[in-house]
């Protein structure tokens, strides 16, 4: 079981992901934009993985990851699972350097998210700077 940080500006998405991940035993912390996400990283133990939205007010997902790299050169090696409804999600993930991404609203979303998260926790591939 893992500590997962969920960062998304849609409260319903945060509720859904929290319920799903807690139902399989994960421990959840939350942020509703990139700035809150960054604060969560320093507020307690580092998460094992971050579930990250792309478009958010104040600080977007890609900008949050850029700040994470600037602050610690990515030493923690925290894998990022990018979750968004954007049609260019794969391109955004590629630019960010993360192999883990999932489109919102697909059928079988719950199962797909759990499988993606499990893979990220095993492989632990943190985003590589483009």
């Amino acid at each position: 079981m893992a500590n997962v940080l969920i960062v998304d500006d849609n409260p319903d998405t945060v509720i859904l992901c929290t319920e799903l991940l807690e139902s399989v035993g994960h421990c959840i912390t939350r942020g509703f934009n990139g700035e809150e996400g960054l604060r969560s990283l320093t507020a307690g133990p580092l998460p094992d993985c971050v579930l990250l939205d792309v478009d958010m007010p104040l600080l977007s997902g890609p900008e949050m990851v850029r700040c994470m790299r600037l602050r610690d050169a990515g030493a923690e090696k925290i894998p990022i699972v990018l979750v968004s409804g954007r049609v260019d999600l794969s391109a955004v993930a590629r630019r960010m350097g993360t192999p883990y991404f999932l489109a919102k609203g697909i059928y079988g979303y719950g199962e797909a998210l759990l499988r993606m998260l499990a893979r990220a926790l095993v492989e632990r591939r943190a985003p590589v700077a483009a």
């Binding site: 849609n10 998405t13 859904l16 799903l20 409804g85 609203g105 979303y109 719950g110």
Partner: peptide, 11 residues
Amino acid sequence: QLNSAVMAFDI
């Protein structure tokens, strides 16, 4: 809204 509904239904 549709994405949220589909995700909730799936879960």
